[in-house]
């Protein structure tokens, strides 16, 4: 698991910059990486996220920029795994959710804002 173990502290890093440093990567934004997440979270404690990478992806990661520890999950694709993974994450407040896909020696990224709101009201 190179992406994570570049430096074992990636999960403990407290900022996005430090996390990327600990992972020893410099991601490039790419339309080939997709995030499926709600625009507005129904429940900040359970935010469903699906990340998809292009053909040739070997690892996928989910980061939450404004969480105390941005790195939430890394998925190392095994034999025959499709380049897509889904899980659910905690978000304390509105934040960009970032998807990373490792393809060869490159790391591609995409982001989407997920709003965590107080709720109420309606039409």
């Amino acid at each position: 698991p190179r992406m994570v173990l570049a430096d074992g502290s990636a999960f403990d890093a407290k900022t996005l910059d430090d996390t990327l440093k600990a992972m020893a990567i410099t991601p490039e934004e790419s339309g080939d990486v997709k995030i499926k997440a709600p625009e507005i979270a129904e429940n900040g404690a359970v935010v469903p996220v699906t990340v998809t990478g292009p053909e040739g992806t070997t690892e996928l990661s989910i980061l939450v920029e404004n969480n105390p520890n941005p790195l939430a999950a890394t998925f190392i694709l095994g034999e025959g795994a499709k380049p897509e993974a889904s899980t659910r994450i905690k978000m304390g407040k509105t934040s960009n959710v970032i998807a990373l896909a490792k393809v060869g020696d490159k790391t591609l990224s995409a982001k989407q804002e997920v709003k965590v709101t107080i709720g109420g009201c309606g039409g």
Partner: peptide
Amino acid sequence: EDVADNLFNPDPYYQQGGDMV
């Protein structure tokens, strides 16, 4: 501010469609 953003976010996908509290 929270309710205002649900009404006036420039991206409709981030709106909830009610009026301001």
